[in-house]
């Protein structure tokens, strides 16, 4: 299977990364004779797809350690966009980082980034590189505080909010992680994957922190369920969303109120908690949908290909567990 270099699949595995980077010499060779920049616009060779391909190749080459091809690509980017282009500057940084194996080298890189940012504090790609480098060195606290500074000057940067959320989540600071994802959704309210991610974070944090507080538990699980519902509302047959709906149900079921009238904690939120019958009906829907997705994608039906193999296996296992608990 050949990977589309302009639009590669998500979650590239080491094997695929290797396949991609092995194609680098060939791609570089096929476009070695090009005119210098202003003239290249006339030849029709200067397409956005070409540069996207180069960027994707560059990242894969760095990952697999093919520094020679990475260098060649970087040279091409430098020749086309110049060394003052912020994005190219970030790529130069990425190349140097990948080769900075020891702590000292990494610290030297940090210092270089610092100098760069002193001359131009608005250089967002370099700011992000510095944060990424700090994260890779394990200095999460510093990375978090720098990311906070970045978001003060650029509060609509959804990518940075999502990164901050992950860093907080890694530190088990669930409320902060939730807040950051809510900010992402303020910037991009239709991002169905982020609705699902928020639901996951809320579910995990609720299970981890409030298992001894029934009010908080019920409220958290209901909120998580609502977010999953929103994700499947925004994206038909969304495996991740239906999977989540099915996972939330066993913890929510014993606590859900029987009818809307005796909702216990109106003080917590203005939205009424889901009733028992709502939870059950959502669960039935999720089971039916997951079953359909697993069956049809396994059969390779037209229009049903394109699901992640690992995700469908997980969904099948979840469904199997369900049938076992019924039959036993």
């Amino acid at each position: 299977m050949s990977v589309d270099l302009v639009y590669p699949p998500p979650n590239i595995s080491p094997k695929t990364a290797l396949q991609i980077s092995q194609r680098a010499p060939q791609v570089l060779k096929s476009s070695s004779q090009t005119l210098p920049f202003p003239l290249s616009l006339l030849s029709g060779d200067d397409t956005p797809e070409k540069w996207t391909t180069y960027e994707n190749l560059f990242v894969s080459c760095l990952r697999t350690g093919d520094d020679k091809s990475a260098r060649q690509i970087l040279d091409k980017l430098l020749r086309r966009f110049g060394d003052k282009n912020e994005r190219v500057m970030a790529y130069q940084g990425m190349m140097a980082e990948a080769n900075a194996e020891t702590e000292q080298e990494a610290i030297k890189m940090l210092r270089e980034y610092g100098e760069e940012l002193e001359s131009d504090p608005t250089n967002l790609p370099i700011q992000k590189r510095r944060i990424a480098l700090l994260t890779s060195m394990g200095k999460i606290q510093e990375a978090i505080s720098m990311l906070g500074d970045l978001l003060v000057i650029s509060p609509t940067d959804a990518e940075a909010w999502a990164e901050l959320s992950d860093l907080y989540f890694g530190q088990s600071l669930y409320d902060q992680a939730t807040f950051c994802l809510e900010e992402v959704l303020l910037v991009m309210p239709n991002a169905w994957n982020m609705h699902a991610r928020l639901a996951e974070v809320i579910y995990l944090s609720t299970i981890a922190t409030s298992s001894d507080k029934p009010g908080d538990l019920l409220r958290g699980l209901a909120e998580s369920m609502r977010r999953y519902c929103r994700s499947v509302e925004l994206c038909n047959n969304y495996l991740r969303g239906y999977y989540g709906l099915k996972v939330v149900r066993p913890s929510l079921l014993p606590k859900a109120p029987k009818s809307e009238k005796n909702t216990p904690d109106a003080a917590y939120s203005d939205l009424p908690l889901p009733t028992l019958s709502t939870v059950e009906r959502l669960h039935e829907l999720a089971t039916a949908k997951l079953g359909e997705i697993v069956r049809k994608s396994a059969a390779g039906e037209k229009g049903w290909e394109g699901y992640d193999g690992a995700e469908t296996i997980a969904a099948r296992e979840l469904l199997d567990r369900d049938t076992k608990s019924i039959s036993s």
């Binding site: 990948a98 990518e159 999502a162 169905w192």
Partner: peptide
């Protein structure tokens, strides 16, 4: 919206760990 997923944020790409 894929660029928001963890591992897909090119701006914060962690080359050292990936390598």
């Amino acid at each position: 919206f894929r660029f928001l997923e963890s591992g897909e944020r090119r701006g914060f790409w962690d080359g050292r760990t990936k390598r």
